[in-house]
């Protein structure tokens, strides 16, 4: 996987309380702004093939629209209680000149 920084959104696209779906290479990702800071995590639920960003965002958690598995939007960590057992990836994020760049976490 490339470790290049890739532009995935305009900074203004990512607003508080709204997931923003994008792509990093072939990977579906979602961007979240939480308390001012932008985070990027994998957007496909490890349980079933669906975009988490279509689910329900509550505080720092995104809930899968299909079976309510929850993930921390800052870390990608799965929260016990749903059918998903695995975390989704977390990405490094850099904001520069009004654009959001991500790369695979080293």
């Amino acid at each position: 996987m490339s470790v290049e920084w890739v532009r995935v959104a305009a900074e203004s696209d990512v607003v508080e309380g709204e997931p923003f779906a994008s792509e990093y290479g072939e990977n579906a990702i979602a961007l979240y702004r939480y308390e001012g800071t932008i985070f990027a995590i994998g957007d496909i639920c490890p349980h079933e093939d669906v975009r988490l960003s279509e689910g329900w965002l509550e505080g720092d958690r995104i809930e899968c629209p299909l079976h309510q598995s929850c993930f921390e939007i800052r870390t990608g960590k799965v929260i016990e209680g749903g059918p998903a057992y695995e975390d989704v990836a977390a990405y490094d994020v850099r904001v520069e000149d009004g654009a959001v760049f991500v790369r695979a976490a080293g």
Partner: peptide, 10 residues
């Protein structure tokens, strides 16, 4: 029951 699709609608 762990989850069901569109519990919170669309």
């Amino acid at each position: 029951l762990m989850g069901l699709p569109f519990l919170r609608g669309v």
